[in-house]
């Protein structure tokens, strides 16, 4: 499997007045296409910072970040937006749906910023995605009318609408109960099986167990990197 994400000697410093905080200290990681990675680590370990850089929302202080063959580490703001819009799908802990939009409109949103002209075709795709995540009955509902699990499913559909190469999930089950968490994780596993590369931040061991590979960070460096082959897959059909 070729590497879809490669970070080389990644450094990230934050400057807070006179104090410089070194968050990432020469990180080297490589993620294969089609993999399902769980990023773990205590708070302050740098996993959120890494996630922001991987999500092209932030730039490293030094080092390279190759998304396929492109070094996105030093891209301009507009170019990063372009990358996010084209290659990435985001799933957040707090779902981050827009309250004024319906389910379908929320799913459509990334297409708007791709410059796509919204037609019946694009709408059909959004509806199909909503149906896929089990929200066929709630296409015109607003986020407020949905449960947490349902909102997260809308977010998953939204992350898929631009057919991304990489899905970044930041504690996707952080706000959900265990039964709903399992539903969401099952869905992500299924997406991974369908060929999507997923990088997920979590601090729960049982959630991390769903991933194929678990990377633990500590103090801005890789603490452990384990293939999770002992994972139970009986829950999947």
């Amino acid at each position: 499997m070729p590497a879809i994400v490669r970070v080389v000697d990644l450094y990230k410093d934050y400057f807070m007045g006179d104090v410089t905080v070194h968050v990432l200290k020469g990180l080297n990681l490589s993620f294969d296409e089609g993999d399902f990675i769980a990023l773990m680590g205590p708070s302050g370990s740098g996993k959120s910072t890494l996630m922001n850089i991987l999500g092209c929302l932030d730039r490293p202080t030094a080092g390279s970040y190759y998304l396929r063959d492109d070094d996105v580490a030093q891209m301009t703001d507009d170019e990063l937006s372009e990358v996010r819009s084209t290659y990435l799908g985001f799933i957040f802990q707090a779902y981050n749906l827009l309250p004024q939009y319906t389910v379908v409109e929320n799913i459509e949103l990334p297409l708007v910023y791709q410059g796509a002209i919204l037609t019946e075709e694009t709408k059909a795709r959004c509806v199909a995605l909503a149906e896929m995540v089990g929200l066929a009955e709630r296409l015109d509902h607003r986020p407020k009318q949905l449960s947490g699990g349902q909102q997260q499913r809308v977010a998953i559909a939204r992350a898929l609408v631009n057919d991304p190469q990489l899905i970044l999930a930041d504690e996707p089950t952080g706000n959900l109960d265990s039964r709903t968490s399992d539903e969401i994780m099952m869905m992500l596993t299924e997406l991974n099986r369908a060929g999507k590369t997923i990088i997920m931040v979590t601090h729960e061991n049982d959630i991390a167990e769903w991933a194929r590979r678990v990377v633990r960070l500590r103090d801005g460096q890789v603490e452990s990197d384990v293939r999770n082959d002992a994972r139970t897959v009986v829950a999947l059909p």
Binding site: L111, R125, A128, M132, D163, M187, E190, A194
Partner: peptide, 12 residues
């Protein structure tokens, strides 16, 4: 629950 992303129409 089973989901199948291949049934979804392609991205525009």
């Amino acid at each position: 629950m089973s989901i199948n992303i291949r049934d979804v129409p392609p991205a525009p």
